[in-house]
């Protein structure tokens, strides 16, 4: 049986998914990236390896997320895709006919508009990360509430307070102020959920036609308070899929399966790569006024790939010396 590996390496979390040919999730790992994308992927592969069904073999690998290029080279991916396309594909297969995807992750949030199974519009947060997972984590820690209970507390509120949600720093000041005025924690948390949803809809969702069915995914979809706030603001049901927090990786696995239709053999280096010694480094080329930042990736001391330059001279050096294709 052929199964497919999808990896989503984000700024905050990294997820790995094994999916079968019917796009079912057989196993997944969800880890914190901690600024070490390669190590965390190796760690994930180590824990995934024993979960592979005995008769299964990896038929292809797809990588997405902000570290997709680096990890794509390191694992030998068959397809490297941006996270918008990966999330859209996963949502469409989990919820056929989906017209809106709300995705909120660790540091970014996006909205994807689909019609008849095709992405027609999208937006990502640009200047501000208020309302993403990192901020919610920070606030939960500050209030001494486990992040898992955060959303449920919001649902207990009867009277959410108004929190200024435009900027996360000011939102925090406003929350402190409301605490000092004596509002209950439940009302403050519910107010925060409303404020973050308002901020999302005014920024990322501005000018977008949000139609049902709406799928809400990404790590923050675990927060029932935010889900309820979305449903209140949109007056639509927000469907949270079972594997909401690994949808990017699931999308990457699905993309890997499709990419293998035109490929004979997967380029995957195998699970043994979790024991290899990868090293990534950068240097600045000052050969011309472009001042490019060149990324080097080496494997057991040998240069594996190089990218980041505009003129291609560094990429060519490696092709000449090792016959490895540049990105």
């Amino acid at each position: 049986m052929k199964i497919y590996l999808g990896i989503d390496v984000g700024s905050v979390s990294t997820s790995l998914v094994l999916a079968d040919i019917d796009n079912r999730v057989l196993a997944f790992e969800y880890l914190w990236t901690r600024g070490q994308p390669i190590q965390v992927v190796q760690e994930g592969l180590r824990s995934l390896a024993p979960q592979i069904p005995p008769d299964a073999a990896i038929g292809g690998v797809g990588v997405t997320g902000s570290a997709r290029n680096l990890i794509g080279v390191a694992v030998g991916a068959d397809v490297v895709k941006n996270e918008i396309t990966a999330h859209a594909i996963a949502a469409d297969l989990v919820m056929p006919g989906v017209q809106t995807v709300l995705e909120i992750g660790g540091q970014d949030s996006k909205i994807i508009i689909l019609r008849h199974g095709v992405v027609v519009d999208f937006a990502m947060n640009t200047v501000c990360a208020a309302g993403t997972g990192s901020f919610l984590d920070h606030q939960a820690a500050r209030l001494g509430i486990p992040i898992e209970d955060f959303g449920a507390l919001a649902l207990k509120s009867n009277n959410p307070v108004h929190i200024a949600g435009r900027c996360s720093v000011f939102a925090e000041s406003d929350m402190v102020h409301k605490q000092q005025m004596g509002y209950s924690i439940e009302d403050i948390i519910a107010g925060l959920c409303d404020a973050l949803v308002r901020n999302y809809l005014n920024n990322v969702g501005k000018g977008k036609e949000i139609l049902s069915p709406v799928v809400f995914q990404g790590g923050v979809a675990a927060n029932v308070g935010i889900k309820a706030a979305f449903e209140k603001a949109l007056e639509l049901e927000a469907i949270v899929p079972e594997h909401y927090h690994v949808m990017g990786a699931l999308g990457a696995a699905i993309l890997a399966r499709f990419s293998m239709e035109s490929k004979i053999e997967s380029s995957f280096r195998g699970f043994a790569l979790s024991e290899l010694q990868f090293e990534a480094g950068t240097f600045t080329c000052d050969g011309c006024p472009n001042i490019c930042e060149i990324v080097n990736l080496s494997l057991d001391g040998e240069l594996l790939a190089r990218w980041g330059g505009r003129c291609g001279k560094w990429e060519e050096l490696i092709v000449q010396s090792q016959n490895i294709l540049p990105l």
């Binding site: 895709k81 941006n82 396309t85 469409d92 199974g117 095709v118 992405v119 999208f122």
Partner: peptide, 16 residues
């Protein structure tokens, strides 16, 4: 990248 995918999908009416 996402915008290029979007245009490609619109042209061929398929997500994949």
């Amino acid at each position: 990248e996402a915008f290029v995918d979007l245009m490609d999908q619109r042209r061929s009416r398929s997500l994949l």
